[in-house]
């Protein structure tokens, strides 16, 4: 299938192009950006990120693990300290809190790796050095009969370059 690689200068033009491409049903597209821009993100995928689920699961696992660990260990070798109960909840909040943050943070990192597809790998064929400079890329794969329409649409949104990469 033909792939059109377009290059933009501004995020607003890129976002507008993405929005119009999606409206026309050209969903097989990928964007490249040198920095995060909310308008581009909303145009491409306005749904909430799944990373938050990882954070939540990590945090809940941390607090649960923290309390269970302390309660079990305190009961396994019961020593009366400062007149407190063997499993005394108030002081356990400190370690419980720290483990909430620790596992929440680690799970967030793993969420980033999984959701963002981050692992050492070959870069995309159409990835360009300019996309880590200051330019934006929109790569659209479409049917041959739609190439002219997609190109016209990209150019109408101020694409400074449109290249037919595969056909």
């Amino acid at each position: 299938m033909p792939t059109l690689v377009s290059v933009f200068d501004l995020p607003s033009n890129t976002a507008s192009a993405v929005r119009k491409l999606k409206d026309r049903g050209f969903d097989d597209l990928k964007t490249y950006s040198p920095a995060p821009f909310i308008e581009l993100e909303l145009a491409e995928d306005p749904k909430p990120s799944k990373v938050r689920r990882f954070t939540l699961i990590g945090g809940l696992s941390g607090v649960t693990l923290g309390f269970l660990m302390q309660i079990w260990m305190s009961l396994e070798w019961p020593i009366k300290i400062a007149g407190k109960n063997f499993a005394s909840i108030p002081p356990f909040w400190i370690v419980g809190f720290e483990l909430t943050i620790l596992l929440g943070g680690f799970f967030t990192f793993f969420g980033l790796l999984i959701v963002g597809g981050l692992y050492p790998k070959r870069l995309d064929k159409h990835y360009d050095l300019r996309f880590s400079a200051e330019e934006f890329g929109v790569v659209v794969t479409c049917d041959e009969r739609d190439v002219a329409e997609v190109e016209a649409l990209l150019r109408a949104e101020s694409a400074k370059e449109v290249t037919l990469a595969d056909s």
């Binding site: 990928k30 964007t31 490249y32 950006s33 040198p34 920095a35 995060p36 581009l40 993100e41 491409e44 995928d45 990120s49 990373v51 969420g111 980033l112 790796l113 959701v115 963002g116 597809g117 981050l118 692992y119 050492p120 790998k121 070959r122 870069l123 995309d124 990835y127 996309f131 880590s132």
Partner: peptide, 12 residues
């Protein structure tokens, strides 16, 4: 880690 600045990567 294979970062290319794609939409899903920036969002995550």
């Amino acid at each position: 880690l294979g970062w290319q600045g794609t939409g899903p990567q920036w969002k995550a």
